[in-house]
Computed example of a mutant assay.
Amino acid sequence: MNPLLTASGLHVTFPGRRGGPSARAVDGVHLDIGAGEIVALVGESGCGKTTLARALLGLVRPTSGSVGFAGAPLSYASRDLKTYRRRVQLVLQDPSGSLNPRHTVYDAVAEGLRIHRYAGDERAAVAAALSRAGLRPPERFFLRYPHELSGGQRQRVVIAGALVLEPELLVADEPVASLDASVRGEILALLLRLRDELGLAALIVTHDLGLAWNIADRVAVMYLGRIVETGTVEEVLSAPRHPYTRALLSVLPESGAEPVVLAGEPPDPSRIPAGCRFHARCQVLASGEADRAGVSSACRTRDLPLLDGHGRAAACHVHGTP
């Protein structure tokens, strides 16, 4: 089955300061998302998740590599991008920042229809989107302003604004990070229901592996511009192979593992180290396990190939795929 969205060999670099080396925010990524599939893109702040998501949306043009949708390469002509963004919608982290405080809920949801010159019944489309997002009866919310809503209701309005164009894929950047714990489950359940009822695919960008466990079909773990582990959510979170994934997973209360405290900060993306890009912080290398496996030199000097985005794989000299 052909994927709905594909990234192939994707690189995004930004100019360095004062003529210094370029920052490799996305440094070679292969990623597929199938129709009706939820993929979680997981990693700590600064690893390149948001830049990758923006490149997939056409908001950032790749330095090299390609993005494809429904079997066709993404065109960056203005008219083609406008059509593409009707089929692929963004849901941002902070609903308060996403909504204009001077616009009513009706205007916020109808904005996409007006941009795309929707020819049907605007009121009916807005009502249907609000209803799908769990705001019922929708007419009750038409004339409300964002400050009159709870955080969960504001996030539902943002989701309704994406749904009103009937997209095939949502890209949700930390969709529940700003919400109370009691509301997070409601929004995650909503996203799952939308997948089941509408066949909607989703890329969930998050630093939270617990969120990925609750919602995703597949997980892609990102570190310093690259995906370092991928597989189904059960494979990756039940038996993580990459030391970085193990560290992220260890801090979840339900993991039962001893928390792994990573040394230092992620390296500067303009000065990516040789060898495995995680080796300076790697608990497997520090513990001597890599030396006992005879690969400690390779960890420090030999780069690992890009993961192809299919099946179960980890970019690790010790525990990776042979």
Rank of each mutant, 00 (worst) to 15 (best):
P175F: 07
I215E: 00
S75M: 13
P138G: 13
G256V: 04
A133Q: 03
R17N: 05
L190N: 03
V221I: 13
G19W: 10
H116G: 08
L190F: 05
D173Y: 04
L149K: 03
A23H: 07
R300C: 08
A257K: 11
V261R: 14
A239M: 12
Y244G: 08
R136V: 14
R114K: 14
F142C: 09
L262D: 03
R195M: 02
S297T: 15
Q93I: 10
S255W: 07
G199C: 04
L31S: 00
L31G: 00
E197L: 01
G19D: 08
L113C: 07
A72D: 11
G16R: 12
L149H: 03
L163G: 00
Y76Q: 14
L163M: 02
K49G: 00
V42E: 01
L211W: 12
V12A: 06
H279I: 01
T232Q: 00
P95W: 14
R300V: 08
G256M: 04
I215K: 01
L59T: 08
L252I: 15
S45R: 01
P62R: 13
H207W: 08
I115W: 10
A315L: 05
L285P: 10
L31W: 00
G134I: 05
V109H: 10
R195H: 00
A202D: 03
P269L: 08
L165P: 02
P146A: 10
R114T: 13
A314E: 02
E235N: 13
R300S: 09
P21W: 03
H116K: 09
A201L: 08
G9I: 13
A53M: 04
T6G: 07
L179R: 06
L113P: 03
V251P: 10
D291Y: 15
T13V: 15
R292P: 10
V221A: 08
R292T: 10
G256P: 11
